[in-house]
Design a protein around this nucleic acid. Structure first.
Lengths: 185, 185
DNA sequence: CCAAGTGATGTCATTGACTGACATCACAAT
DNA sequence: ATTGTGATGTCAGTCAATGACATCACTTGG
């Protein structure tokens, strides 16, 4: 066995979720989180840039997988088709994550302005990443931002619906359904 | 003359803008701002909840005026017509503010992630306020959020265009133009 | 098998945002 | 003249965040 228990970052994430849920975001100190994870506060900041980011770790991967799917979409697919591919690709990201965990995490975010700020900027980053990806596919400059914006909207709505019903369809199907609804508008 | 110079909040705002522009947001301490405004740091926090908010003071008024205009719009106006009225009402807000000031402020926000976060949540608040206003006008629950979202998009695009050209049209006209473009989509 | 890394962590000190409690004092109201 | 009241100052304290340096299990070249 190594000198330290492995996966300090994972332990910090779990500790943070638990404590934020118990005492609220403001009622929790970084030292509290670090203690529960069996490390020092200094180590917390080696794994996460700040107290908020611990709840958003992995969001880069989500973005990357969507951007990759966008790039890999058939060359003859239209902008919204390509975006649909990207959003659908996000689904596999949640395969490893219990829906209940996602729900509790989202409840926390919705209840905490500081965390909502962080989430909004993540979504903005996702939007501009998708926009960039669309432009690289040759999509017109006035269409790309709109399509990206729409894609992120589909993602958010689907995610919200997915976590709202513990026994509902898997997220892929929710996304498919949302995309279908979109077409009828 | 009173015991203190009047309008401490105003002086703090100006000092903050100047220092953020000179040294950047991170390179400026609240004590710096307070010093330049001739007060103590404690007083800064009596006027603004945090170091970011000093650049967003007045945003409540902007939101209020838009919500009010929305409520006062003709009863027979459709959702998007009412939203258009609200967005146009935002224009008078900028009559008192030099365009150049708005531009420098926006440059600062765009260059500072922490300030971008704050701006995003302000926009989100505006969107939900407009949504609420639309619902109170009897707009259908599935239409209201979309119309509100669109209205805020029009506002943002117009504002961006307005500050990008120092000698361009007044903001009312930019908004009108943006709304016209929107109809052609 | 040993010596020189290397990486993840701990320790310590410091800055700066933010808050609560309490004091002060020009001015207004009575 | 007395008594608020409101805006500010003062002071002490908590906590997020960062830099500098130490430690030590484990790896790697010789």
């Amino acid at each position: 066995m190594g000198r330290w228990e492995p996966d300090a970052a994972g332990r910090l994430r779990e500790a943070a979720m638990a404590l934020y849920a118990e005492r609220g975001f403001d009622g929790t100190t970084v030292a509290d989180i670090a203690d529960r994870a069996g490390v020092t506060a200094r180590t917390f900041f080696r794994h996460f840039t700040d107290k908020r980011e611990v709840l958003f770790a992995g969001s880069e991967l989500l973005e990357q997988s969507m951007v990759k799917a966008l790039a890999d979409a058939p060359a003859d697919a239209g902008p919204m088709e390509a975006v649909a591919v990207a959003v659908l690709a996000s689904a596999e990201f949640f395969d490893d994550i219990p829906r209940e965990y996602s729900r509790r995490r989202q409840d926390l975010i919705n209840a905490t302005p500081e965390l909502r700020e962080r989430e909004l900027i993540k979504m903005a980053a996702l939007t501009s990443a998708l926009t960039k990806g669309l432009l690289e596919r040759g999509v017109a400059a006035d269409v790309a931002p709109l399509a990206a914006e729409t894609g992120v909207a589909v993602f958010r709505v689907s995610f919200e619906r997915w976590i709202s019903d513990p026994d509902g369809e898997p997220i892929v199907d929710v996304i498919r359904s949302t995309l279908k609804t979109l077409k009828t508008l």
